Simulated scan of single mutants.
Amino acid sequence: MATQVAARVPADLLLRGRVLRPVDAEHIYSNPRAEFARLERAGALHRLAPGLFAAVPDDHVGRKWRPPLEAVALGTAGTGGHTTSSALMGISAARVHGALPRALNVAVVAVERHRNTLQLTDRKAAVLFVRRAVARLDVQRHQTELGQGWVTTVEQTLLDLIARPELGDVPDAAREAVASLIPRADMALLRDLATQQRRRRALDDALDAHEAA
């Protein structure tokens, strides 16, 4: 029991989120990198990429555990206190909405500032950051294994997939997700959003193609 308690990530550190960097712990540890290495060895931290870790749930400490890719993407985008300026979008939002059951090797997240694509080392996958004005997107709250954040709504997700099906380099999956989401969308809201975001023609073409299929 004592070993498990010693392996827990400090509660004060978790206030910053469950995706952590050594720099986040400078107010707690005099040598954050060494302490993170100790917590990783004890199974309390899971390394996602160099310098980036996920806090392991207490009931999984010391056991094999890996968070879902979409949770990693949202948690990573929220590092440094940016949780309100990021949202899962595109194919990742489609995954959250159940429009694409199979796992992918890429996640897409909207952020306010430019960030380079993150190559994960705990799996063959990447997190693609897309610069967007997140406050202008239609979003809803979403709870993941790594905390709470935002995800685009069904309607916003549809518009994004229609406008940029190649984003993430999975166009077949994007088309599959569009076909799955159209019957679930609020058409009045969808058309209003398309008008506001100047995507009405692209939406009408997509709806016509869906009806013809």
Rank of each mutant, 00 (worst) to 15 (best):
G81F: 13
G90H: 15
H114R: 06
S86I: 04
A135R: 11
A71V: 12
P101T: 02
A99F: 08
R47W: 10
R141C: 04
Q156W: 01
S92P: 01
K124Y: 14
L74D: 03
R132L: 10
L128M: 12
T144A: 07
P57T: 11
Q140G: 14
L39T: 01
V72T: 02
R132F: 14
V130Q: 13
V151F: 09
T152I: 05
L88H: 03
G75W: 02
G149T: 07
G75H: 02
Q148A: 08
M89N: 01
R63E: 15
V127L: 14
R141G: 14
A54Q: 01
H97T: 07
A103H: 11
G80F: 02
R102F: 09
G51W: 13
A133C: 09
L128D: 09
H60C: 13
V154S: 11
G43N: 09
K64W: 09
T117W: 11
L120I: 05
A44C: 00
R102P: 05
R131D: 01
G62D: 08
G75K: 02
Q143C: 10
L137C: 10
N116D: 14
E145S: 08
T76D: 11
D58H: 15
H97D: 03
P68Q: 12
S86P: 08
R141W: 12
T157S: 03
P101K: 02
A125H: 06
A44K: 03
A77L: 05
L159M: 08
S92V: 08
V134A: 10
S86H: 13
T153D: 09
G98Y: 10
H82Y: 15
P67R: 07
P101S: 04
V111A: 08
R66P: 00
G78T: 04
